[in-house]
Simulated scan of single mutants.
Amino acid sequence: MAQQVKVPTVGESITEVTIANWLKKDGDVVKMDEVIAELESDKATFELTAPQAGILKINKAKGEVVPIGTVICEIADGGAATTPTPKAETKTTETATPKATGGVKEMKVPAVGESITEVTISTWLKKDGDFVKLDEVIAEVESDKATFELPAEANGILRIVAKEKTTLPIGGLICKIDITEGGPVTASSATSTPALTSGGGDKTYAS
């Protein structure tokens, strides 16, 4: 809201003053109590100060004669209170974006038991194009004897090859991961046995 600035009473016998000089220009940002103009009467010259901080809007020009109580300018809220927007968030966004290394990790159906020759993709827990982390469970795969979880073998962008309910032989290509910063998984992790979530009897399947 704009604050109106009027010519103050400067003496009992003074009924009007002349705007001798504007020390600030129209549209300038002014501070509270800052001198913005000089007014003069036939007896004295005095300074006019801003009653609040804000943006100055001049209503009366230099040299004009105005009666006591006349609005000679207005000061709108804003300007001095404005602070620049920090740019730190932009950098945070840039560093959070995975950067491709150019490598691709192919994930194939691991050996889950001597008698198991094929498995079915039960459920994809991640969507095509999702960013996945190393060892994060991305799918559930089932055989006729057990259901097990399939962990990601690298950090990167998931590219699904075999859709849900697709039956694949052991060694069949399930998906690919476009590797991002963090690199591919080590050989020991890549060949780890999938975790069984349910099974038949007391049978344990090892690679």
Score class of each variant (00 low, 15 high):
residue 71 V to N: 08
residue 72 I to N: 04
residue 73 C to L: 04
residue 73 C to G: 11
residue 73 C to R: 07
residue 74 E to V: 01
residue 74 E to A: 04
residue 75 I to F: 09
residue 75 I to D: 15
residue 76 A to H: 00
residue 77 D to Q: 03
residue 77 D to F: 07
residue 77 D to N: 11
residue 77 D to V: 03
residue 77 D to T: 08
residue 77 D to E: 09
residue 78 G to H: 12
residue 79 G to M: 04
residue 79 G to D: 05
residue 79 G to V: 02
residue 80 A to M: 13
residue 80 A to G: 05
residue 81 A to I: 15
residue 82 T to K: 13
residue 82 T to N: 10
residue 82 T to M: 14
residue 82 T to R: 04
residue 83 T to I: 10
residue 83 T to H: 03
residue 84 P to T: 04
residue 84 P to R: 11
residue 84 P to M: 09
residue 85 T to H: 08
residue 85 T to F: 04
residue 86 P to H: 02
residue 87 K to S: 07
residue 87 K to D: 05
residue 87 K to E: 14
residue 88 A to S: 06
residue 89 E to T: 02
residue 89 E to F: 01
residue 90 T to N: 07
residue 90 T to W: 06
residue 90 T to M: 13
residue 90 T to Q: 15
residue 90 T to K: 13
residue 93 T to R: 09
residue 93 T to C: 08
residue 93 T to H: 05
residue 94 E to I: 03
residue 95 T to F: 15
residue 95 T to D: 07
residue 95 T to R: 08
residue 95 T to N: 13
residue 96 A to R: 09
residue 96 A to G: 06
residue 96 A to C: 08
residue 97 T to M: 12
residue 97 T to Q: 15
residue 97 T to F: 09
residue 97 T to W: 11
residue 97 T to S: 01
residue 98 P to S: 10
residue 98 P to M: 04
residue 98 P to W: 12
residue 99 K to T: 05
residue 100 A to C: 08
residue 100 A to T: 13
residue 101 T to E: 02
residue 101 T to C: 05
residue 102 G to S: 06
residue 103 G to V: 12
residue 104 V to R: 02
residue 104 V to H: 01
residue 106 E to K: 06
residue 107 M to Y: 12
residue 109 V to P: 05
residue 109 V to C: 11
residue 109 V to W: 05
residue 109 V to S: 13
residue 110 P to V: 00
residue 111 A to L: 10
residue 111 A to D: 07
residue 111 A to I: 08
residue 111 A to K: 11
residue 111 A to V: 07
residue 111 A to C: 09
residue 112 V to Q: 12
residue 113 G to T: 07
residue 113 G to M: 12
residue 114 E to I: 01
residue 114 E to C: 02
residue 114 E to V: 06
residue 114 E to F: 01
